[in-house]
Design a protein around this nucleic acid. Structure first.
Lengths: 108, 108
DNA sequence: CGTGTAAGGAATTCTGACACG
DNA sequence: CGTGTAAGGAATTCTGACACG
């Protein structure tokens, strides 16, 4: 699937740094989490940790908010895109199954 | 040169997370900085911020320390490698200069 | 709805130092 | 030399709430 290092996805950035990186207030960042737009991990103690991908997501959210898009709508768009990805994945699986059905399972 | 995002080089990770990631104590991490083996940036307030590259460097240091290599020796090796890189860079510059001398400066 | 703020507490980080070896 | 630890203070982060609109 993806590489192991995957710096972009590792959740290692604290909210203070994310705030600097995005220009958003910590309040805003926490609120967008409440609205299910970002999903930080937590340290044992409970501190939020974000990835670079999260930071980009937040910048994207900030842009949309500036255009007046509500968090609910942003959420809906996210879910829509997710469903599309799922659908494509399912199609690929089906296709793979068909190949197997016709040519049998091969040891490579 | 390198890409702008460059997740690997961005200094965004706090010492606590670096400690988790490397298994090193904060004391050790600060000491290796004192010995000029890593170079974190600082927030305005003075908190250290590390990159993924720094984390890898620290893991490498930890491995060497386990083999009994002293920080001074690690430092010497680092400097040696650095000088080699500089030398190669210089060679490339020289070569470029020679090309220009023979064929003149061309607008691409 | 989206965001600011004051509140109180707990964990984080910093520096300089003493300790051991 | 390399690392642990207690010390004291300052900044960080967290949650729940009140406020405004």
């Amino acid at each position: 699937m993806s590489e192991n290092p995957s710096y972009k996805e590792r959740k290692v950035i604290t909210i203070g740094v994310v705030s600097e990186l995005t220009g958003l207030s910590e309040r805003q960042i926490r609120y967008y989490e409440e609205r299910k737009l970002v999903f930080p991990e937590r340290t044992e103690r409970g501190n939020r940790k974000y990835s670079f991908a999260d930071v980009e997501q937040l910048i994207d959210i900030a842009d949309q908010r500036e255009e007046g898009v509500q968090t609910y709508e942003i959420r809906q768009e996210m879910l829509k895109r997710e469903r599309k990805r799922e659908e494509k994945k399912r199609q690929r699986q089906l296709f793979k199954g068909e190949i197997n059905a016709r040519f049998g399972i091969q040891k490579r």
